[in-house]
Design a protein around this nucleic acid. Structure first.
Lengths: 126, 126
DNA sequence: CTGTATCCGCCCGGATACTG
DNA sequence: CAGTATCCGGGCGGATACAG
């Protein structure tokens, strides 16, 4: 019984994680969402904030994020085109995910920094 | 000041997320970890549990997971080779990440199921 | 059983040029 | 500014065969 329970739990967990990764997985989606957490941004602003992303990829990611209900795209002017991307309320539901991931990432970075220094006994650098 | 603070917070968050995604990002790593949460598993067992992964990719992912300290690889027999993969204590630090991600994934799946049904008024199909 | 080596097709994504 | 179109090279990853 306990084994079955574990197996079922695992299956459900795998399915849930699968669903999550399907919409917020990949290299950029979470970064874009984080970049928008400090307020709405325009296209080039986003590209500057999310370091390393190309216009082509950013464009595609923004479309998917909009389709999945995480952001809204608003055109504010036509002459010089001004477009603004903003997080929706639904993206607030990612708060726990983002918080735990940021927290873990910071912890892991610290752990790496600490464990990589003591290579040499004379490693008294920096 | 508040703006600067936001910008710095965003940068730190982006860096942290970047570190996290670097080691647990991608299509498979979290699924493998979840598959091992119900106990240690062998290679083929893992391949059966983590649906869709090929031997080649599973092998590579396991190596990276081991290098990054999430799992241990133990050889139990040589004649018919028996290898066991097991989560390390360090992978326990991912608990919050996995919990929030599973929770969100389940919520999202439910939301999708609810919002996708009412397409047609006659949509009473299977 | 637990992988690895090789081949290879396909797609991701960079670069560039272009449009509205 | 906010993208899009096209080209194109590298690499991801499947299939298969093979090794220990």
């Amino acid at each position: 019984m306990e084994l079955d329970h574990s197996v079922e739990t695992c299956s459900g967990a795998l399915a849930a994680i699968g669903d999550a990764l399907y919409v917020i997985g990949g290299k950029w989606k979470l970064r874009i969402i984080i970049a928008l957490q400090s307020g709405s941004k325009r296209f080039n602003e986003l590209q500057r904030t999310v370091t390393g992303i190309s216009a082509r990829v950013l464009s595609n990611e923004l479309k998917e994020l909009e389709i999945n209900g995480f952001i809204t795209r608003t055109v504010h002017a036509q002459v010089p085109v001004v477009v603004e991307y903003e997080l929706t309320e639904y993206s607030d539901t990612l708060e726990d995910v983002l918080t735990s991931l940021k927290k873990w990432g910071a912890m892991h970075r610290q752990k790496i920094r600490n464990s990589l220094q003591p290579i040499s006994t004379e490693a008294r650098s920096s």
